[in-house]
Write a protein that binds this DNA or RNA. Structure first.
Lengths: 364, 364
DNA sequence: CGCCCGCCTCAAACCGATTCGAACACAACC
DNA sequence: GGTTGTGTTCGAATCGGTTTGAGGCGGGCG
């Protein structure tokens, strides 16, 4: 009793015809007598037959396609990256298929293997950080000469890469706060599975170490990557904190966290930016539609997707192997209304001028 | 001069070994002498050889997977549906792959064909409305006995379906406005490629025809599905409109449009809900994080995704064919702060009591 | 009546890999 | 020198379809 799915051979046997005839019925080609067609269709029905599309002409290239493995399908950041990649893919006649790992290492691993085995022509991915740091599936890709481009750096994988210098961008965001006269900041950090979380935190650390700011481990608050995370973390962190214990500014992993935080602050009766300044990251469209438009770092998301797809397609279509390329795109600080000089900035006389000054380009 | 990609046979010939040996090198299995491995790897390099994964063991089922074709990858509505579907898929050991049509008919068609040919086990889709109404690719799915579930009804395709009664939900939203005493409303309509656009508009029409409201074709404003669309349409519609010509309430295709509209109104100096009431649709998380939380219709997005995946998996795993099932889920009106009685509601004496009343259940 | 031709159907080759038992070379052992 | 063993390579079968040229069958025509 075979438990496997029915094949064309089974159908042929059932209907008392040859595989060729079944194939003809299946594809509506050639001439098949009506009565024969009936018999075949009936057999297919009875066996619940479902053809394995890629069986015949094994080597025939199916529709051209690229795959992208993102981390959160409900994050506008990844959505826009995917949109950019899709646009370029489409231009070149490729269809983009998206799989989300939702930050789960196993899911990412499966996704990479699946897309590869489903025979997409190339792959864009952003590795999920794992405690075991097992990136064998990416090495496997290299070993099999499979074209792929990363959207997040990962140690030791010599692959093509498109990214932004997150450390530097994050540092510049903090320097903006320092320029405004802030003296005590906190960082709402992103999910542990993302390299960007580490890089952005690192940027904060570096900016602080070059200033009079003291930034310790207590000043890192895990907040995830979403509205709710920022909201909850904000509520928890600020609810019972004495004014003297409060930072005057918060930098966030991304805009969603920043927006969630803003709402929490609002509910707690704290005003942004009068009481607390808030900085986001990514510059998603939403930042301009919330009560207080968010100061943030503009990451060229769409362009990153485009570029990744371009590089990937070049790899895919090249007859010879191409050495990995790396592209770092520029990120730009966008000052909106969620940042301002802290309320106490006027007190220390020597900083008066600086505190009143509008955000200005760093003079370094 | 063959222009096709190199196959294992080519590599074997180049290296002067058999296909079996090349395969062994490829999979790091068996014992291969170092010198032979070298020769083979070199040949692979020279030919830029890339194995076709699904060639060997043609019939071997690859990783189990489901496909979903959505319409806008940057729309939180679809994101959450996909998230629900992914959750259930994962539970059953399937990986979910997403393709977005971005509302383009051709892209959707290609996506359906691609996923099918890439050998996913089943498909969730929401048909793009096309002027030619050519749904042959869905009939093709049926013909090939390929399991799929729709998330938007489409005439004449007898397939399994999961949806919400959009007409009714939209009607209830308008009735809420009528209850509040509104007398002149406008509908910011969605994209033409979506059946939901028509259904939600239809709901508005029906609610109005049962009331004293007059709702004509001029009262339908195309606004797309995104923040920017609602914002621009809002600006264009309200900018030079005399107060007497203004509706007292606007129902929107979805929450994003509603949020965009709110921002436009704010910029024009119109207050929500004091001057204009705004109703959204979908109840995305965002509705609570904007300046004026949006009154909306809660669509069980996640649950819809879950249910669609469940139904699909049942189809996929069933040994026999299952007749199509249809499930309509409940949608619920969520009253937040963007709707209130219109400013002039107090004027007509006979409506005074009603205008002051809080939103209450319809008495019909 | 015999021949030709069109309509159907089929057997066999094929696609690009994997898999496995057989075969070969060479060394060690009795 | 023959046997056994080990390390390496190969030939052939296989997966589930598609494709194609060959051939059986029956009817119309000369």
């Amino acid at each position: 009793m075979k438990t496997d799915r029915a094949t064309i051979t089974d159908v042929a046997r059932q209907a008392g015809v040859s595989k060729a005839t079944v194939s003809a019925v299946l594809n509506d080609t050639d001439a098949v007598k009506a009565s024969t067609r009936e018999r075949v269709l009936e057999a297919m029905q009875r066996l619940n037959y479902r053809p394995t599309r890629l069986a015949g002409r094994v080597g025939a290239r199916a529709t051209k396609s690229l795959g992208i493995v993102i981390k959160e399908i409900d994050n506008p950041y990844y959505a826009e990256v995917a949109l950019g990649a899709r646009a370029r893919a489409q231009d070149h006649g490729y269809t983009l298929v998206v799989v989300s790992s939702e930050g789960e290492y196993d899911a990412e691993r499966r996704a990479v293997e699946l897309l590869q085995s489903k025979d997409v022509d190339g792959l864009i991915a952003m590795p999920v950080l794992d405690e075991h740091a097992d990136l064998s599936h990416f090495f496997e890709l290299k070993r099999r000469n499979f074209p792929f481009v990363l959207l997040e750096a990962v140690r030791g994988v010599p692959a093509s890469l498109v990214d932004v210098d997150n450390v530097d961008a994050s540092r510049r965001a903090v320097e903006h706060l320092i320029d405004l006269g802030h003296t005590r900041i906190v960082h709402f950090a992103g999910p542990g599975y993302s390299m960007h979380t580490l890089e952005r935190l690192d940027g904060v650390r570096r900016a602080c170490s070059g200033s009079r700011l003291i930034f310790g481990d207590d000043d890192v608050v895990p907040a995830g990557a979403h509205l709710e995370g920022g909201y909850r973390a904000g509520l928890a962190y600020f609810r019972d904190r004495a004014p003297a214990d409060r930072p005057t500014a918060v930098t966030c992993y991304n805009d969603l966290v920043a927006i969630g935080l803003c709402r929490a602050l609002n509910e707690l009766g704290l005003r942004v930016p009068d009481d607390i300044s808030v900085v986001g990251f990514d510059d998603i469209a939403l930042t301009e539609f919330v009560p207080v438009p968010i100061t943030t770092v503009r990451v060229p998301k769409f362009r990153m997707g485009e570029l990744a797809a371009e590089m990937l397609i070049r790899h895919v279509e090249s007859r010879a192997a191409i050495p990995p390329q790396r592209a770092y795109l520029d990120a730009q600080l966008i000052v909106r209304r969620s940042t301002a000089a802290p309320a106490d900035a006027l007190a220390p006389p020597e900083r008066m001028g600086q505190a009143l000054a509008a955000p200005r380009p760093r003079s370094r």
